[in-house]
């Protein structure tokens, strides 16, 4: 037997060992969420927490929670957190960040909060190039109040306040937030991703990571719009709701990078 053959045979008898490949991120709190089964808020929370873990930001992060289904988000992250008035999270985040420039401040807002009542605050926060990160959950409906029409409701979509389907002649058209904010010079990063399947979830996480990196590099305002589902108010099973998001939301809200400043592009190439 040659020495090489001996080594091979010895390797064969080594037992494979078990490696931890996924565990609940540390930046999540132990509290159970109140979200409905299959609601993608939970996925978005998890991705943010994974990114905070990976970038080592748990000790520096401050969350500003919205009014909407995610009103209790501060209970679900193990980071400092505040609860804003409806739509005002970006203004509150501005105050926090200006006096705590070394902290990492992010808002978590739904479509009613950000695109309806809080549209002025988010636009001006972007205009100022405020160094904060916004995670924007677009599920085309008001969840917490029980399924009313949102600014992001799709034409024809039935909600409790558009019972015959959204009529654009009466109620206008969906708001394209990622595109809208990409047009502002203070915006460093504005992209849209979806949470409807694992491949897109992985892409969404990368975008969230880049958004936080934009803040760390002080490049300005960063936002990730996440197409999400609302099985309860859409009246579907969680799996059907993800299919509906894929088939109806993505055509209305195309996925993509609407603004990525050069500094972030360079970083991406270097990786």
């Amino acid at each position: 037997m040659t020495a090489l053959a001996f080594q091979r045979s010895e390797k064969k008898i080594l037992k494979p060992i078990e490696k931890l490949v996924y565990e609940r991120p540390h930046s999540l709190d132990e509290n159970h969420t109140h979200y409905c089964p299959g609601c993608t808020h939970g996925i978005a929370h998890r991705l943010i927490a994974e990114v905070l873990d990976e970038l080592g930001l748990q000790e520096k992060a401050i969350l500003v929670a919205p009014v909407g289904c995610a009103v209790l988000a501060y209970n679900y992250f193990d980071v400092d957190g505040a609860e804003a008035a409806h739509g005002r999270a970006p203004a509150m985040a501005t105050g926090l960040k200006r006096v705590n420039p070394d902290s990492v401040v992010f808002t978590y807002q739904g479509d009613g909060d950000l695109a309806s009542i809080g549209i002025a605050e988010v636009i001006h926060t972007a205009v100022r190039g405020e160094n904060i990160t916004v995670i924007f959950i677009n599920n085309a409906i008001y969840g917490m109040t029980g399924g009313q029409m949102a600014p992001t409701t799709i034409p024809g979509q039935v909600t409790t306040s558009s019972p015959n389907g959204r009529d654009t002649a009466q109620t206008g058209y969906p708001m394209q937030i990622a595109e809208l904010l990409s047009g502002l010079p203070g915006t460093a990063y504005s992209v849209r991703r979806s949470l409807h399947d694992t491949r897109h979830i992985i892409q969404a996480k990368k975008a969230i990571r880049t958004a936080f990196e934009a803040q760390l590099q002080e490049l300005g305002f960063s936002i990730v719009e996440l197409l999400s589902s609302c099985p309860t108010n859409w009246g579907m099973t969680p799996i059907k709701a993800l299919d509906w998001a894929r088939d109806n939301m993505i055509p209305q809200y195309p996925l993509g990078d609407y603004k990525v400043v050069d500094e972030l592009k360079k970083k991406r190439r270097n990786r």
Partner: peptide, 26 residues
């Protein structure tokens, strides 16, 4: 120190709220 002209009184008060949460004299 920090001075910021907000886009509205609504935003201004919420910026104050944020800075107050951070424990700053605001």
């Amino acid at each position: 120190r920090v001075f910021l002209q907000a886009e509205s009184e609504v935003a201004a008060v919420n910026m104050v709220y944020g800075a107050a949460c951070a424990g700053a004299r605001v």
